[in-house]
């Protein structure tokens, strides 16, 4: 199988990892982890000025990475909030890319599929390149694709849980039914093996933050994810052997001495 790069609204990226910029123990660790991850895209957000240590210093650190910036609408609970925040992101970050995040339930931070469709339609019409964070629901993904999304980001499991891919069947079905779309597993990954599994399923990339930032050594973990993503993609391109129900010896039985003499 011929490989192709991760493509997001026409822009190609060599590395298939998208990394978050939150939760690191220090700005220096954040910078080192981002670098070690090999990611070509970093996620950012907006909050009230002076409410957190942020602003110009943080923005300068991110700009120094030279990576493509993907702003998010994290924390929004309504279509109106998300659309307004997307507008504000576009002005501050000078990009029409938006990771559209619209939370429907505070317990598991599950995306609201109905509001997500509404906001996606509005933002696409306004020229945004929408990357919706969604559940692993096939029909929802089909609806988002029908609206014009070229990239979808179904969750692996709820944000920050580190549980990995809770429903590989759903994710695999989305991959099979939407073969032309760029699919990225976003949220819930905890281990490099989770990222590897997503890529083995044929996903084009993974977006993660807590799994690296929350590790004992974020920089080393970033490198581990970098390798895992590459391994998973290579495995997908190589096409795995078919699974079998019955054992089959790998060493030839022909010529075996003492063959069943006892």
């Amino acid at each position: 199988m011929q490989d192709k790069p991760l493509t997001i609204y026409g822009q190609a990226f060599e590395n298939r990892l998208l990394i978050g910029s939150a939760l690191y123990p220090s700005p220096m660790v954040m910078q080192q982890a981002i670098s070690e991850s090999g990611a070509g895209i970093v996620t950012v957000s907006l909050r009230r000025q002076s409410s957190v240590a942020a602003g110009e210093d943080f923005w300068q650190l991110i700009r120094n990475t030279g990576l493509t910036v993907l702003p998010n609408t994290a924390g929004c609970n309504s279509t109106k909030e998300a659309v307004t925040l997307a507008h504000m992101c576009r002005e501050v970050f000078a990009t029409d890319w938006i990771k559209l995040e619209l939370i429907g339930d505070e317990y598991n931070l599950q995306p609201d599929p109905i509001a997500l469709l509404e906001a996606t339609e509005i933002l696409l019409q306004e020229g945004f390149k929408v990357l919706p964070y969604c559940t692993d629901d096939l029909v929802l993904c089909q609806r988002l694709a029908a609206l014009g999304c070229e990239v979808l980001m179904p969750w692996g499991s709820p944000i920050g849980t580190g549980k990995g891919l809770l429903n590989p069947y759903n994710l695999k079905t989305i991959r099979e039914r939407l073969p032309e779309l760029t699919l990225i597993v976003d949220a819930g990954l905890g281990l490099p093996s989770h990222a590897c599994q997503a890529l083995e399923l044929g996903y084009d990339g993974v977006l993660l933050n807590s799994a690296i930032a929350g590790a004992g050594c974020p920089v080393t973990m970033a490198g581990a994810f970098n390798h895992a993503v590459q391994a998973g993609r290579h495995a997908y391109v190589a096409q795995a052997m078919p699974q079998k129900e019955v054992a089959a010896p790998s060493t030839p039985t022909m010529g075996m001495p003492f063959w069943h003499q006892n």
Binding site: A22, L46, V52, A54, N72, A74, T84, L85, E91
Partner: peptide, 29 residues
């Protein structure tokens, strides 16, 4: 709750009771 482009801030008049949000970049996942 409505985004106001920077280019329109000068001409956007305020009224008593208005609510203004000023947002800046922060870390995000």
């Amino acid at each position: 709750g409505q985004f106001i482009p920077r280019s329109q801030c000068q001409t956007t008049l305020l009224s008593d009771g208005d609510s203004v949000e000023l947002l800046s970049p922060i870390q995000g996942g």
